[in-house]
């Protein structure tokens, strides 16, 4: 309840977003007018079958793809009409990314991978060092900071990637199937860390996943079908198990197969 005040302004506002691919004769509507809001300190999951448009949505929000029409406001700023240079600046200052395949730089140590995000922001050395250690401790990777990515496990890699995403204190963390390449134990550790970041550090996470188990850690789930918002689930007072069951129900309604169950 302590974050009540901050929740009054949405950190992310998507309004009537449309994205078309192809030409006149062969038009694909990846996003067909989607609207929703995310408040500060929310942990939102985006679910949908393959081809439903969830990755396109994430790419539009992360500003590496531009929408055909509609608007995206992040922290009050309309990112749909920024130029390339402003977008780059916006990305490094306001957004944090976690990818399915970690995307760590294999030539850099874990420490350097995290520090790089701050170095790009031209932060002073002392601040870099302090922040890297703080975030590493938070995610339980303090002991592996000197190692190279090939020397650590997948779960550790993803926590390093998450550390890199949040070390700059972005307004919004975008996670694209972050547990996709992890075993269930590592996935659980990571999801718990995300929960902790949201609960204790007021981070805002938007996570795309097709996995009901991962989604059950969120506060709210957006279901997408054919480029439209199909349904949404709010966790409320449910425990994780109850929330998980509700998610499964919606998935079967959506026509998802049992493969999506973990």
């Amino acid at each position: 309840m302590k974050n009540l005040k901050k929740r009054t302004a949405p950190i992310l506002k998507v309004k009537n977003l449309e994205k078309y691919y192809g030409n006149k004769n062969n038009l694909t509507k990846a996003l067909a007018g989607i609207s929703f809001e995310v408040q500060t300190g929310e942990y939102v999951g985006v679910m949908g079958a393959s081809g439903s448009g969830k990755t396109t949505l994430l790419n539009c929000i992360s500003t590496i793809d531009n929408a055909t029409s509609g608007h995206i406001f992040i922290n009050g700023k309309n990112v749909t009409n920024l130029d390339q240079q402003e977008l780059t600046k916006f990305r490094r200052e306001q957004l944090g990314f976690v990818f399915q395949d970690f995307n760590l730089l294999d030539t850099l140590t874990a420490y350097e991978n995290i520090a790089l995000a701050l170095a790009i922001l031209k932060k002073p050395v002392e601040e870099i060092d302090e922040k890297v250690h703080k975030v590493a401790k938070l995610l339980g990777i303090g002991k592996i900071l000197d190692r190279f990515p090939y020397q650590i496990s997948g779960g550790q890699k993803q926590r390093v990637a998450s550390a890199r995403a949040i070390v700059t204190e972005p307004s919004l963390v975008l996670a694209d199937e972050p547990t996709g390449a992890l075993d269930s134990k590592s996935a659980q550790t990571l999801l718990l860390s995300f929960q902790q970041l949201v609960r204790d550090h007021n981070a805002t996470i938007l996570m795309v996943t097709h996995d009901a188990f991962s989604a059950s850690y969120c506060n709210r789930i957006l279901f997408i079908r054919d480029g439209k918002l199909f349904n949404q689930l709010v966790r409320g007072r449910d425990n994780r198990k109850q929330f998980f069951d509700k998610i499964i129900d919606v998935i079967s309604l959506l026509g998802g197969s049992s493969n999506d169950l973990t």
């Binding site: 590496i64 780059t88 490094r92 200052e93 990314f97 995307n103």
Partner: peptide, 15 residues
């Protein structure tokens, strides 16, 4: 792959 990632996390083209 490396540069693509750098671009994604907001490294500008000049850098």
């Amino acid at each position: 792959r490396r540069y693509k990632l750098l671009h994604k996390i907001g490294t500008d083209e000049r850098q």
